[in-house]
Design a binder for these strands. Sequence first.
DNA 1: AAACAATCCAACCGCAGTAGT
DNA 2: CACTACTGCGGTTGGATTGTT
Length: 343
Amino acid sequence: MGRSPCCDHETSGLKKGPWTPEEDKTLVDYIATNGHGCWRSLPKLAGLNRCGKSCRLRWTNYLRPDIKRGKFSEEEERIIIDLHSVLGNKWSKIATHLPGRTDNEIKNFWNTYLRKKLLERGIDPNTHKPRTDLNHLLNLSQLLSSANYNLNYLNDIISNNNTTPWENALIFQADQVADQLIKIQLFQNLFQAMNNTNCSSPIFPNIQNCANFSSPPHQNPNLIFHDIQSMNVAPCNGIDIDSRDRNDLKPNTQAFVEGEGGDGYDVDLRAIKGTGRSAGIHEGIVNPLPALVSEPSPGTTYDQILDNMSSEPSSTVFEAWDKLMDDDQTNESFWKDILEYVN
DNA sequence: AAACAATCCAACCGCAGTAGT
DNA sequence: CACTACTGCGGTTGGATTGTT
């Protein structure tokens, strides 16, 4: 059983719903001269027909003088996404790193904007990893259908109309480009999904020898977590995650620490889901794919990681993908499995 | 211009944690 | 230790606004 409500609006006759400017002024004036003191007794003392909880929320989320209103900057956006990946839905904790922003505002901003933005980019907003859900993959199926439709349409134009060879060439070229773009999109999404899928998954039963592709697990960008200790040493952009936040890390998420621990130890930027010690690196998920973001070198700062993540992909990443595509192991049955699954 | 849908965001609800007795 | 009062937090709601048909 939970607590009983702080007040019963039905029987007490206390007002609820949007605040009027007059009520706001009464509350602001009272707190300006007396401070808020005990919230429960405040409404009576201030002459407001509201419950204390309503007054507290109105003050902390809206009337407080230090509240910063207006659009979130790109920097704030980045900080929220980043902190959310470490802290999860700890809105109040996130808010402590964004002066002038309330937890409620950040939560709303996340739910109405950032969450969707990540989803559109194929990132699961809960895990901050590539999406693996079926609906997302089904979109790829639609993409392929669309590609086929466009292809047929182009073929119809070529076969039925009296187009010049020059026009044919242009159409053909456009078709090739479109086809390549669709393939790239397909592969990117598919491999990001696979990146998160155990090789022994029954979904891809005929894909073998994944380990032959293997790069060290810590090259998997999804397993790179933030260097919390160094952020303490050299906080950047106002972020300063304290030791308490470390306890608030989401389950199975932890900064990976090399050495003995304690203050001043070296922190390895590599982290691996579900493991806490260095040996874990060898026991972790084997990544069958070229890394989309390269491993940070020891000592890389937090800012540098973010910069790298935005500036990559590098040519070497694409080269790695080319190699994978040309590899004998990416044979017909490999693609057959994938396409069968997608359809 | 009207109807409907989608989005936004302030406010509410209820649970958890904590301080006081 | 048990109980109560209070505050803080995260999830949810619903009215207002904006966009689309």
